[in-house]
Nucleic acid binder design. Structure first.
Lengths: 146, 146
DNA sequence: GCATATATTTAAGTCTACTTAAATAAAAAG
DNA sequence: CTTTTTATTTAAGTAGACTTAAATATATGC
């Protein structure tokens, strides 16, 4: 039914669709909240890392430590991040999401995943089974280091 | 093997993984090229639309027409976009990607899809078949209006 | 312990994406 | 044909994310 040669293309198309929608929805969500993209990307980095220092944010976002420090500071003042001293190295800071910040990110996910959930609801049990199987395969294949 | 109840979660996780990687890689690519995110998003919009006017860009990006006009102008000067008069309405402009601009976007896709292609290469024929089937189901389920 | 290296912050200034307001020009309405 | 609306551009100015440079404080190496 599906030509094996076409898998690469359809995988790309699928990833492309998902990415395009997610980015569009995310951009709208960020804007509606009054955040800038850099601010939101920083929050997302903290979300994925659970906890990280200014240096990590600086490297990851490819900006100076000064810039990272300033952005963090704004988000701390807004109550979205918490900044504490690293007990192992008192020069360093540990940045984490506040409950308010976490809630914000999670609402963002809900927003980004609305169309996914919608799509999922419209699948038959048989389709659901097939898709589930394929997702397990893909999840396994995509284990990688960040 | 796969609990139907878990499909929603694993679908979300998969979309999340794909989106996260794609955004990260895209952000790096954009930066390496010296573009700003707004500039790149505008190029992407033109790419998806093939052709569009200033008003469309303005609405889609939620900025004023003046801002859209200015950004387009920079990209035209850089040789990434072409701006011509709309023959049906001489007030309006038609913006399209130049060959240089299209090449840039397509290289960006290659960059964003490197990990997808890599993953695909490591699938067995049987897995490939299953994934292909699931992708067809998802592609069908996600037909939607933009 | 002293010199050096590292992590972050603060201050000052730059750059640019954005805005509003006004100008231009063509289409649509009457 | 005149008036009004629509599409875009230009000019001037604002805001904020970024930079460099200097300050502060802690950790590490000899």
């Amino acid at each position: 039914m599906t030509d094996p040669i076409q898998i690469k293309t359809s995988l790309r198309e699928w990833v492309e669709t998902a990415t395009h929608r997610a980015m569009r929805d995310q951009a709208r969500y960020v804007k509606s909240l009054g955040f800038s993209m850099p601010q939101f990307f920083l929050l997302m980095r903290v979300y994925y890392r659970k906890q990280c220092g200014i240096s990590d944010l600086s490297e990851h976002m490819e900006i100076t430590a000064a810039a990272a420090s300033q952005t963090v500071d704004k988000l701390v003042q807004g109550g979205f991040l918490e900044r504490t001293e690293d007990p192992n190295d008192r020069r360093a800071k540990q940045v984490t999401l506040s409950p308010k910040g976490l809630d914000l990110i999670e609402r963002g996910f809900a927003e980004r995943f609305r169309w996914v959930d919608e799509m999922e609801r419209n699948l038959s049990d048989e389709d659901r089974r097939k898709v589930g199987e394929a997702l397990a395969i893909l999840a396994e294949a995509s284990r990688e280091d960040d």
